[in-house]
Design a protein around this nucleic acid. Structure first.
Lengths: 151, 151
DNA sequence: TCTTGTTGGTTACAAATGAGACTTTATTCT
DNA sequence: AGAATAAAGTCTCATTTGTAACCAACAAGA
């Protein structure tokens, strides 16, 4: 086990890495679409996984529901997404991307993909595989991902 | 290069991993010492690297100076650290741990080390090496670490 | 010396967040 | 059916954070 120094303390290391890697991209969605990170995340979930309710997003992204509620309202105001009452349960609203939101999603995704590639570029393919795998296990994202349950 | 899906997007992945891994430990310093994360970080820097000024901590940790200023004040109120005017430059204050702060640091460090070991336990030694190395490179922490400049 | 610019640190105000109460609708149990 | 419980989502308030202005001390140049 490596020695306990700041450079080996995972919570600290992950936080720093997260901030460093998020910085450049956050200016993109902020400057281009005046979005906050939570809004970009909600947009991303809807664009990637398709229509879903706020609580679906909460389960997937592990964000608190109040954060999502606020992001949804902001995205509605921007005309990026639309709400419609979910078929049976009148408590739920199904969220979906409007054409304008789809365009923003496509645009941002292209930039995000490039950004991600640049971030991963310094690592060897083997390192990339291990890094991503470790992070997925640490993040607990695989636990609730919709795709993994369909295997 | 891996496909661009949420589970491979580093900023998102790192954020989720950071939140997951920080959660358990944040309750420790909060419940035991009523500290915020920024306070724990400042305490940690002083405990690990020795006396330094607020701007030293800012450079090392890449935290904004207002955050540090507030954390320093809170730690002073808790009697964990003390300020004294830095020798020459009367703008700077050298920060140092009081005995009480040292005790808290030792206590929290022991718990943090155990926590870190538990987080790293699921990975093989090879994975650990690569994970930590990748994260250090992504975090930019190595850039300004005082030890690396002494090599 | 007297400006001009820079740095360390604090303060003030606006914006974002978290925790929990609250409303409405669905579910379960008797 | 009626009461109790739970879930989806919103709202409110206290806490935390970010941005920028600010003050004091230093530094450099005319």
């Amino acid at each position: 086990m490596p020695p306990f120094i700041p450079e080996n303390f995972l919570p600290y290391l992950l936080n720093q890495a997260a901030e460093q890697t998020s910085l450049a991209f956050s200016t993109v969605y902020r400057d281009r679409y005046n979005m906050l990170r939570t809004e970009w995340r909600v947009l991303f979930h809807l664009g990637h996984y398709g229509d879903m309710t706020a609580s679906d997003i909460a389960r997937l992204s592990k964000m608190h529901k109040t954060k999502i509620s606020r992001a949804v309202k902001a995205l509605e105001d921007k005309r990026f997404i639309a709400k419609r009452a979910a078929s049976e349960d009148r408590r739920r609203d199904t969220l979906s991307l409007r054409p304008e939101g789809r365009r923003a999603f496509d645009d941002l995704c292209a930039i995000a993909a490039r950004h991600n590639a640049r971030l991963l570029a310094p690592f060897s393919p083997g390192e990339r595989l291990i890094l991503l795998d470790c992070l997925q296990r640490l993040s607990g994202l695989a636990d609730s991902a919709p795709d993994s349950s369909r295997l």
